[in-house]
Simulated assay, not measured.
Amino acid sequence: MSTTTSTPVVVGIAGAGTERAALRYAVDEAERHGRDLLVLHAFHDLPTGLPVNPLLTVGEQREAGRTVLDAAARDAAELSHGDLTVETALREGSTVHQLLDASRQAATVVLERREHSLVERVFAGSVLNGVAARARCPVVVVGAGWDPDSVQHRVLVGIEDTAVTTEALDLAFEEADQRKASLTVLHAWAAPTVYGDMVFARTSQATWQRETAQQLTERLEPWTGRYPEVPLDVRVAYDWPADALVRMSAEADFLVVGRRNRPLPGGLSLGSVTRAVLREARCPVAVAPVLDDE
Rank of each mutant, 00 (worst) to 15 (best):
P8R: 12
V109W: 00
H33C: 00
V52I: 15
E160S: 09
L38I: 00
H153P: 02
S249G: 02
D293I: 10
E175G: 04
A188Q: 07
D101P: 10
I159T: 11
T7S: 15
R62H: 07
T162V: 06
L183Q: 08
A42S: 11
A213V: 06
A252H: 11
G196D: 05
L291A: 10
H81S: 11
R91C: 12
L38V: 09
D147H: 06
A252F: 09
D75P: 02
H81V: 10
V10I: 14
D239G: 00
R247Y: 05
A242Y: 06
V185Y: 09
L118H: 14
G143R: 02
R275M: 12
N53L: 01
A72K: 06
F200W: 08
M1W: 09
H44R: 13
T88L: 00
R210F: 09
A14V: 11
R24A: 15
P263W: 06
Q61C: 01
V155D: 00
G65S: 00
V9E: 13
G258D: 02
T88A: 03
M1D: 12
V27P: 07
A201Q: 10
R279V: 12
S182K: 12
A14D: 15
V234S: 07
I13M: 13
H97N: 14
L171G: 07
L278S: 05
A181I: 00
L220C: 01
Y238E: 11
Q215W: 13
E280K: 00
V27L: 14
A190N: 06
G59H: 13
T193Y: 13
L38S: 01
S249A: 05
Q152K: 15
S103L: 04
A276V: 04
S249I: 06
A107N: 02
F200D: 04
V140N: 03
A188H: 04
R279D: 12
R66V: 02
A89L: 12
R113H: 15
L216Q: 13
A190S: 15
V290I: 13
Q205K: 14
G267A: 05
G49M: 15
K180R: 14
G145N: 14
P284T: 06
L171P: 03
V140Q: 01
L291G: 10
L111T: 03
R134Y: 07
T217N: 01
G266P: 12
P47S: 02
R275A: 12
A172H: 01
V199S: 06
A206R: 10
L171V: 06
D28F: 09
G158S: 09
R66E: 14
S117P: 09
W146A: 03
D147S: 08
L264D: 11
T212W: 13
P289N: 04
A191E: 14
